[in-house]
């Protein structure tokens, strides 16, 4: 067990340092800061909800930076390591394929965590500064706890996507194919709740729609609804209407989903030809 942890942490360190070496984080942080600065010019359009618009913008920039990291750096790191055969160098050591998968995941997740944390701190200070500049009617409430909860939710969501990328890398060959499948997966996750809602409204009148509704519910298990981890609206609410049970269950479900997907990825990697 101790040796397994050592192997996993070694691969994680390698992935982490490789990411730092490529200055991926630096590039994304600079991009995010530029976007955040440009957003200030648009706040003048809002007459009342300046606080809300600012918080939406800052958190969306963090989300976008995370997605760019996942779809470009993470996919490249995992898929290209196979294309360039650098994976053989790692696996020639006494490291199992599952340890390689977990180590790579932890390394990339650590980079993602540093990216989220640094952008989150910048966003937090930005919101505090904006709050001091405005009258209370324009920015009445800033729930720090819910702000941190939103960041955790975003981090967990992006870790799930990262796990899916690892799974697709185990299933497919080629970074471009993995990238396309990952993007398609993300869009399917966004679409299913919308279709479910539309079908739910029609289901009382159309009996045949029941099977389709159950099919969609089944698909929602494979393509989870990540909007359950979106707590942006609660940051500026006086009394946010969040139910503790729903929030905890969303986190627990997502964590379980992550573990299941990683387990499948480890299984695929251990069975496939490299």
């Amino acid at each position: 067990m101790k040796q397994a942890i050592q192997c996993i942490s070694a691969v994680a360190q390698l992935t982490f340092l490789d990411g730092l070496r490529k200055q991926t984080l630096l590039g994304l942080i600079v991009l995010a800061l530029l976007l955040e600065c440009s957003g200030i010019f648009f706040m003048d359009f809002f007459g009342h909800d300046i606080g809300r618009a600012s918080s939406d913008f800052l958190l969306s920039v963090i989300w976008l930076a995370g997605l760019v990291f996942l779809f470009f750096h993470a996919v490249q790191t995992i898929a290209l390591s196979e294309e360039r055969k650098s994976i053989y160098m790692i696996l020639s050591r006494p490291i199992s394929r599952s340890q390689y998968v977990l180590g790579t995941f932890i390394g990339l997740a650590s980079l993602l965590l540093i990216l989220q944390a640094s952008l989150g701190v910048v966003a937090w200070f930005s919101l505090l500064w904006i709050k001091t500049q405005l009258d209370v009617q324009y920015f009445a409430v800033f729930n720090h706890g819910y702000f941190v909860l939103s960041l955790f939710g975003l981090m967990l969501m992006q870790c799930c996507v990262l796990a899916i990328i690892m799974l697709f890398c185990g299933m497919l060959r080629g970074s471009f194919l993995v990238l396309m499948m990952s993007i398609a997966y993300y869009f399917i996750c966004s679409s299913i709740p919308v279709v479910l809602e539309a079908v739910k409204q029609q289901i009382s009148s159309v009996q045949e729609g029941d099977n389709f509704y159950y099919l969609l519910q089944g698909l929602a298990l494979i393509f989870p609804d990540f909007s359950r981890l979106d707590f942006k609206d609660a940051i500026l609410e006086m009394n946010p209407s969040l139910v503790a049970v729903d929030t905890v269950s969303a986190f627990v479900l997502s964590a379980l989903y992550l573990v299941i997907v990683l387990t499948c990825a480890c299984y695929l990697y251990s069975r496939r030809d490299l």
């Binding site: 939406d56 913008f57 969306s60 976008l64 975003l154 966004s190 679409s191 990540f226």
Partner: peptide, 14 residues
């Protein structure tokens, strides 16, 4: 809009 905007739906609305 809901599908395309995903996590950034509030930003799309803005």
């Amino acid at each position: 809009h809901q599908v395309v905007s995903s996590y950034a739906r509030q930003l799309f609305a803005d």
